[in-house]
């Protein structure tokens, strides 16, 4: 009798669980249910823009096709995950300490967010980079896939991306800054005015003494 009296409440609980389950499935990122379809057809995006390419990995692990901005705001969820990012190589190649075969490059996001991530890679992979971004150059745009560490155990806790593959998807270019004499003219004119004022001030002060 007691069990019968509890039956409606059990039924209600069951319905609640099912509704919650259905809701969870509905809001769950679609990439979590990705099937073995071509990558280009399967770039299901969530609101955050996070994507997965399931076709690239021989095992069952995911490769997050993410952005540098997302990695720069990553929490522990992305720690030790395989990711793929695209960015502009900036600065220069920095030698890795006590590790002559490897190096560091800085990858700047190309989505305008200004985020930068440190990429640890072998020197041979970076040979394809023809320009590093600076005032005088736009760096090569590279796609890097590898393992992201929020706290890298190999590099004393730095937040980095260990590259397995690095492909240049757009070559860099020199930025040409031409010399235009007319750009100097307002400055020269004002400089003359300033120097004349300076000289006049000196004369007037000497006159008062």
């Amino acid at each position: 009798m007691k069990a019968l009296r509890k039956a409606p409440s059990l039924l209600a609980s069951l319905v609640t669980v099912m509704v919650a389950g259905a809701f969870a499935l509905g809001v769950c990122p679609t990439w979590a249910w990705a099937e073995d379809t071509p990558f280009s057809q399967n770039l299901a995006t969530t609101d955050g823009g996070n994507r997965v390419n399931p076709s690239q990995m021989p095992d069952s692990s995911f490769l997050y096709d993410t952005s540098i901005m997302e990695l720069s705001q990553a929490d522990s969820y992305l720690n030790n995950q395989r990711v793929q990012v695209v960015g502009e190589a900036v600065g220069e190649r920095i030698n890795a300490e006590f590790d002559p075969d490897n190096c560091w490059i800085s990858l700047k996001s190309t989505d305008g967010s200004d985020s930068v991530i440190a990429v640890y890679t072998s020197k041979s992979l970076t040979e394809a980079i023809d320009h590093y971004g600076s005032y005088n150059a736009t760096g090569s745009t590279v796609q890097v896939s590898g393992t992201f560490y929020l706290v890298c155990p190999q590099h004393e806790g730095v937040s980095d991306l260990h590259a397995d593959a690095l492909n240049v998807i757009a070559l860099g270019a020199d930025r040409v800054h031409g010399f235009h004499f007319e750009a100097f003219l307002p400055g020269i004119a004002l400089l003359i005015v300033g120097l004349v004022l300076f000289w006049m001030f000196r004369r007037m002060r000497e006159g008062q003494r």
């Binding site: 005032y135 010399f179 400055g187 300033g194």
Partner: peptide
């Protein structure tokens, strides 16, 4: 270093400061 745009900009701004300071 042949950075002509910054050169013209700093010449202009330095001159503004020179004129303003003297005035």
């Amino acid at each position: 270093l042949g950075e002509w745009e910054p050169a013209s900009r700093y010449l202009f701004c330095a001159s503004i400061a020179l004129v303003a300071g003297n005035l």
